[in-house]
Write a protein that binds this DNA or RNA. Structure first.
Lengths: 345, 345
DNA sequence: TTGTATGCGTTATCAA
DNA sequence: TTGATAACGCATACAA
């Protein structure tokens, strides 16, 4: 059915070698030959078979992006930018979801049983060091870690400085005059690095203002979804005295938190100020609009993809760490700028 | 580096044929051979090369999902379910974005220059019939259309009944006692089928209640994002008399609409009732929570993937149309149930 | 500059 | 039941 290199060669009365040269843009091909080949290609509607090419060259042109769930706004936005960045470098992107399943993460890290199907992997996991420990950078396919400052310096990673980001968010609440500041997002059992680092930044900011972190005001959240934020907040508001501000470890947690405050008959930011992390678009239109820490996801995506491309070219590259910029964006939920002033539209 | 079938064969002192049989679970292999082979596989850490397998069998185990933008909640939710459905059938999913670019759509329909890289394609496009007209179902790779009732019956498609869905949403507003009902989502220039059908359903519902559609109350939206909904609503509210209800062709439009009503100093639903379509999670936590038409995306994803799988097996299958169920979900934005009653949490 | 021939790692055909 | 071997479609070493 589909034409092959050989079909084209026969039709153009040249060897497959010449056709291959033309197709792959090889320099030394006479103009006459090139034209002949090009016409045959046109006539046959020839399209190179990437699979055969891959078998020969070992490169698939495919990257794998692994996220917990693609429908979490932060990850879908990241995915969008990763796909675009990859496309600009000639790669296509496969997406896998771990669904918070450690075993699945471990499996995907091993190549998911399809080791040779992609040239490299972008891994945006919950992963503790545990899953990574078994992985040998020298033997596995090129890997870039996203969003986690793992304490494993054998791998490249691209992430924000979680400690500073959390510190900045908390400081913003303190600067708004709040003193009973709660946090949502510590993990109940797991020892993921992101929550740990955010908690560290949170405490550090309190400490700088001479405040002690109140244990009862530090709520855990199994996941980082709206439902988790809602539940955690509902429970925080039963404390007495109740918190006058909440730092949520994700914007989605914050969206749930805002609704919970409202459902409890209180107001944001008057009674409780709220800030998140991620800067998802939803927070620019919510009522009140959400103060947050904006992460430079385009930077993350571009850096990660180009580093991965580089590593695919040269697997011997030393592991490196890339820190993405972040900015605190005050909006209505902390009594800050109105939506119109927030750059939201 | 990586062990091949031949390496295993050498080590186990058998032919590659036997190893292949064991690996692919062929019936007629003596237990002794199987054990010998299995041990060699274990010792060498052998993993089959999917690319070579593909070259031979012609099947890659990859599906391509094409959406306008993966970070639109509706599409990311769909993607999530497609990926899961595909995984359960042994497929992995590549994602491509068209970014509202017709040329890009056309190109992807032609296989994106990588025709043989995936076994089939799920296409969730803006596509008019135009892009599809050039495509020959018999020659191109298996294709399922998502979300569009194209007037082209040469292809399978999975979609809701847009006319009825829009009719039901509008009827809900009418049942709430609203009489000046606006709509947002008609397309400025393009003739996509989805907006056309939703407009048809909208008018039909008005007509059934003896109302004439007011041209000035039918706002266009270039895309279906929050910003579009915000702008369109801001302009609708300048009409006089202003609308007392708005039917938005997507939930995202509705989120922008709610914020715009609020920014205009009015209230939802008291002054303006709002309903959307999609039932994204965001609308369950917003203030007010968003009345909407819930689409059965799990049904859409499962149906599309299994139909695609069937078509990959038998490309000769006749084109078929699958209609996904939808339900109107009244929430606060039309004065309906409170968040807690809405099944939102 | 172009042609010939080999191999990438599998599966499948044909014998044995 | 198992072995030898020919494809699958392409890129490239080697020759011409």
């Amino acid at each position: 059915m589909a034409a092959t290199l050989r079909d084209v060669a026969d039709r153009a009365q040249v060897s497959v070698r010449t056709v291959s040269n033309v197709v792959s843009g090889y320099e030394h091909v006479s103009e006459k030959m090139r034209q002949r080949v090009l016409r045959a290609i046109e006539e046959l509607g020839y399209i190179p078979n990437p699979v055969a090419r891959t078998l020969r060259t070992g490169k698939t042109g495919l990257l794998s992006l692994v996220v917990p769930e693609i429908d979490v706004p932060y990850f879908s936005q990241l995915a969008r930018e990763v796909i675009d960045a990859a496309a600009s470098l000639g790669f296509q992107v496969m997406i896998d979801q771990t669904g918070h399943d450690h075993e699945r993460e471990r499996q995907l890290l091993r190549g998911g049983g399809r080791r040779n199907l992609f040239d490299g992997m972008l891994f945006a996991p919950l992963a503790t060091g545990d899953e990574l420990r078994d992985v040998d950078p020298a033997r596995s396919s090129p890997l870039i870690l996203l969003g986690e400052h793992v304490f494993d310096h054998r791998f490249d990673h691209v992430a924000i400085d979680n400690v500073v980001a959390a510190h900045d968010a908390t400081t913003h609440l303190l600067d708004c005059g709040r003193t009973r500041i709660a946090a949502i997002g510590a993990q109940p059992k797991e020892m993921y690095s992101t929550p740990l680092q955010r908690t560290e930044g949170f405490r550090k900011a309190l400490d700088e203002h001479g405040l002690e972190p109140v244990t009862a005001l530090q709520a855990t959240a199994a996941h980082y979804g709206r439902a988790d934020g809602y539940e955690a907040t509902a429970s925080l508001l039963r404390e007495s005295p109740r918190p006058d501000a909440i730092f949520c470890y994700s914007d989605l947690l914050a969206m749930g938190a805002i609704r919970a405050v409202f459902d409890a008959g209180l107001r944001v930011p008057d009674d409780v100020a709220i800030i998140g992390i991620d800067d998802i678009e939803e927070g620019r239109y919510s009522r009140p609009s959400l103060s947050t820490v904006s992460l430079d996801t385009p930077f993350i995506a571009r850096t990660a993809v180009s580093r991965l491309a580089a590593r695919i070219e040269d697997p011997g590259l030393p592991a490196e760490e890339f820190v993405a910029p972040h900015t605190v964006i005050p909006r209505e939920s902390t009594g800050g700028a109105s939506r119109a002033d927030s750059g939201g539209v």
